[in-house]
Design a protein around this nucleic acid. Structure first.
Lengths: 260, 260
DNA sequence: CAGTGGTCTAGACCACAAA
DNA sequence: TTGTGGTCTAGACCACTGG
């Protein structure tokens, strides 16, 4: 009985319960988050020093730091060497959109993912893409186009360009199911180490509209990807169009879950 | 001379240089990254255990862990309790787009940011927005519309809806320059603690097109924001339209910078 | 059971900022 | 000079995994 009462007091008085399954650094993070949200610390205010927090909550400084790192990652506080740790302005007006593996993403949404390989072609290295990929004059570029489906409905069109290495067999199966950077490393022995993607809004042109089963002019999310090798050359170019009405990105910023 | 030679050997042999300004945990991270990219460890392979890495590089386990955390954050490895730490499939096909403070973002791009307040209105709580904001029947909703400018050119239109508290004065200046969540907490004494934003592609309607100085149908990035209070109620709704041709989001995934 | 990662501690030295 | 955060250490206990 007393034990239970002590625990309740711990929660009320914002003490650390070392017998809990929730690790102390996380308990402290939720406590500090509460103290910030309650208005005790306002944006710009300094938090107590790491040493003082350690004394107050009877934790080692390393543990306090682990907790502060957690809050800093979430943008709630900012540490400044030699000065202190300060509460940030609320950062709820910043968003982080993650474009991740298509299959996993659809799984979470409860849709059945699907792929359809539309084109596979060898192109001459003449046009703009060839220049970017720095292909020799008589080399070829492998181009392929893939459709991403959700419950058999087209959600996105992907165009991908990479150098073509003669003699290296490429399975259509690979093109259809594997990630672009994997396809490149498998078929050219070059390992992409850097990726840059830009996202903007655009209108579907004729080809994309057809493939997306929609009208020309359909709003789409256009993503352009450049993959670089270790020596800084572009080894792959991707252009992806996501159906504007069927595909969206979500960003969620919320408080830490309490110790329930 | 010998000192210098030793350092060179350290780099070649992938040892830690404790006299360097680059902290050991970071040196180890770049070393392990190299060993992974070189093909020594392939996706799915286990890394040596934390204890073994500590012995190999003469570092404490905590330092090794700090390094592994760094690589894990970047998606290069995944730790599994009780089993080990494993190299991930290359995650270059995942992107993280950050929509951040408009002013800072434009500063980085070398554009001059600007704001223009277009509308401020009190609406009746009848329509869809009113229901979401759970406004009482005789309360009012504060609506305002803001234009974001880059070098005096319109880049985005923002529509924002929040509960209106009688008697609380609201300065137009605040609406024009302050972040939405800040405006809400200043004028309703409710602190938003959670934000959910969705991003999709759309076409500009008449009003947005006019404000963006573009034709109807212009592709736009449409972002919808909901701000929640601690008790789970929606306390603010925002709808933002970013000019599709003038605004884009960028994601960059690249290797750690070496110890130059 | 042994080995793994997850967490915590008490102490230490450093670089940096402010008085 | 004092106090701050940034880093590192050598040890410890725990929960989890797999044989």
């Amino acid at each position: 009985m007393l034990h239970r009462k002590d625990k309740v007091n711990d929660l009320k008085m914002n003490k650390i319960d070392k017998s809990s399954f929730v690790p102390p650094f996380y308990q402290l993070a939720t406590i500090l988050e509460k103290r910030i949200y309650s208005g005790e610390f306002k944006p710009g205010d300094p938090l107590p020093s790491e040493t003082d927090l350690g004394k107050e909550y009877e934790l080692s400084r390393m543990t306090v730091r682990k907790c502060l790192n957690l809050l800093a990652e979430r943008g709630l506080i900012v540490a400044q060497q030699g000065r202190g740790t300060f509460v940030s302005r609320p950062c709820l007006d910043r968003a982080t959109f993650v474009l991740e593996d298509f299959k996993e993403e659809l799984g979470r949404r409860g849709l059945e993912p699907g792929y359809r390989l539309v084109h596979v072609r060898l192109l001459k290295a003449t046009d703009e893409i060839g220049v970017k990929l720095q292909v020799q004059h008589d080399d070829r570029i492998l181009y392929y186009c893939r459709l991403l489906l959700g419950n058999h409905e087209p959600l996105a069109v992907e165009h991908k360009y990479m150098r073509y290495v003669k003699g290296k067999p490429i399975l259509e199966n690979e093109l259809q199911y594997k990630a672009f950077s994997e396809v490149i490393s498998l078929n050219t022995d070059i390992l992409p180490v850097r990726s840059r993607m830009t996202l903007c809004a655009a209108s579907a042109e004729v080809e994309e509209a057809q493939l997306l089963n929609a009208a020309v002019g359909l709003p789409v999310l256009k993503v352009e990807q450049s993959l670089y090798s270790q020596d800084g050359n572009i080894v792959g170019i991707g252009i992806f169009y996501y159906h504007g009405e069927r595909y969206s990105l979500v960003s969620d910023i919320q408080p830490l879950k309490g110790e329930g």
